[in-house]
């Protein structure tokens, strides 16, 4: 039964694992017991918080939640970007949209809430990142400053590559360059995301930061997750409408059906993951718990 208890959160196991194992040794284990333990593990992940177990744990939990929402948003961004070119070439898409204006509404909704989520992502992420780097400078934390430099380098490289491609602007698609650009962007995104998460993971946060985090990180996180969910719903409706009313778009547009579905799956999975992490990192009863 020990393997089932491993499904429980680490803090839970530290507190209850031994006594639960002792109980299970005396208890007749049935399929109902296994199902009950599985549900119990899920419940513990969703509801067990350890505010009473120390502020350090709260900070670490928040930190983990922020990093995981960040990763979820990156995955969401990849899926969202894949879907954006459904209206290219414009002429074919506009032809379908004139007959079915709801296509434009859904596409615009997906685009707008995606942008809203990205704005919230910047508003929430940049101040936290700034605090982390500022503390790293003060405390001379080399293990934070190095990933910070790497993340900035990734951003600069991406901007340079994009600007170069935009300035060059060839009249015909040169696929070797396009694939090279996309591969480089994916690599920079991956390295940059890992570097940023290392900055947050290793940064020195203090108790006073918690209230700041609540307003400037938790609220944007709510907006991010809301945007993700709304855009998933819009994209799903768009997929259904195109399939029903204008299936030829999947042949004529830059985004084919497989690409659309992969993009949508990325968005769905990341939204579920972000919602779970948001719940896990919530700061319920922050004031009374950190004041003790």
């Amino acid at each position: 039964m020990r393997w089932l208890l491993r499904l429980y959160p680490r803090r839970w196991r530290e507190r209850y694992e031994d006594e639960m194992l002792a109980l299970l040794e005396q208890h007749t284990v049935t399929p109902a017991t296994i199902a009950d333990l599985l549900l119990g593990a899920l419940d513990a992940h969703l509801h067990y918080d350890a505010f009473g177990e120390g502020v350090i744990y709260v900070i670490n939990r928040l930190r983990a939640s922020v990093i995981e929402v960040f990763y979820a948003f990156i995955l969401y961004g990849v899926g969202w970007s894949m879907l954006q070119r459904i209206n290219d070439p414009v002429d074919t898409y506009d032809g379908a949209a004139r007959v079915h204006p709801e296509l434009t509404v859904l596409h615009d909704a997906m685009f707008i809430v995606g942008c809203l989520g990205f704005l919230a992502f910047l508003l929430g992420g940049l101040p936290l990142f700034f605090i982390a780097v500022q503390r790293a400078f003060v405390h001379r934390q080399r293990n934070v400053l190095v990933p910070f430099v790497v993340s900035v380098a990734c951003l600069l490289l991406f901007v340079t590559a994009t600007a170069t491609l935009a300035a060059w602007h060839p009249q015909t698609h040169v696929y070797q360059y396009l694939i090279g650009y996309l591969s480089l962007s994916a690599l920079l995104l991956l390295v940059g995301a890992v570097a940023v998460s290392l900055v947050i993971h290793r940064a020195h946060f203090e108790v006073s930061d918690l209230k700041f985090v609540f307003v400037f990180v938790f609220v944007p996180e709510v907006v991010i997750v809301f945007s993700m969910i709304v855009s998933v719903l819009s994209a799903t409706a768009l997929l259904i409408l195109i399939t029903v009313h204008a299936p030829y778009l999947f042949d004529t547009q830059d985004v084919g059906r497989p690409m659309f579905i992969i993009g949508l799956l990325c968005m769905v999975l990341s939204s579920i993951f972000a919602a779970i992490e948001l719940r896990r990192g919530r700061l319920r009863r922050l004031n009374e718990d950190t004041s003790t």
Binding site: Y16, M20, L37, L39, G40, D43, A44
Partner: peptide
């Protein structure tokens, strides 16, 4: 069952 019991114990303890 143990999962339900300890879910409730954790809440009551908290």
């Amino acid at each position: 069952e143990p999962g339900t019991l300890y879910g409730a114990i954790a809440r009551l303890e908290k």
